[in-house]
Simulated assay, not measured.
Amino acid sequence: MARNPRVKCPVCKDTYAGVPTRRTGMVSVHDHKRTPRALVLCEGSMVHVPISDAIGWQDELPEPGAESAAPMVELTLF
């Protein structure tokens, strides 16, 4: 049975399972609570973090239809 990689939570620094994401080389920290019986999740739950032994990482792609803030360059042909 395949196991999820173990990663450190960026907030509480404990080690938890990394849940696969759609980004290459990245996982999200599994949901975990601040204290064992609390109802409030840690702020680091479901944050995307890089896998330590990954060869490469993929940046998050923009949503389809989102307008870019950079102006387009106009070409003039002579």
Rank of each mutant, 00 (worst) to 15 (best):
P64Q: 12
L75K: 07
S28H: 06
M26E: 04
Q58L: 07
H32E: 04
A2T: 00
R37E: 15
M72N: 14
K8F: 03
P62D: 06
K13W: 07
H30A: 15
S68C: 00
V29W: 03
S28F: 08
T24M: 11
H32K: 11
E63V: 02
E67K: 14
A17M: 10
L77Y: 06
C42E: 03
A2V: 13
V40D: 13
K13G: 03
M26P: 02
A2G: 10
C9D: 10
P50T: 05
G18F: 01
D31P: 13
V73T: 14
V27Q: 07
G25I: 06
D59A: 06
M1D: 12
M1N: 09
G44N: 00
M72G: 14
E63M: 06
W57R: 04
M72S: 04
V73I: 13
C42Y: 00
C12I: 07
V7Q: 09
P62L: 01
K33D: 14
V11G: 00
G56M: 05
V73M: 13
K13R: 07
P5T: 08
V47A: 13
V27L: 06
E43L: 15
R34D: 09
A2E: 13
P36E: 13
P5W: 02
S28T: 13
L77M: 12
A17C: 14
K8G: 05
K33M: 14
V73Y: 11
Y16D: 10
D14T: 10
D14S: 14
H30F: 15
V27Y: 02
N4V: 11
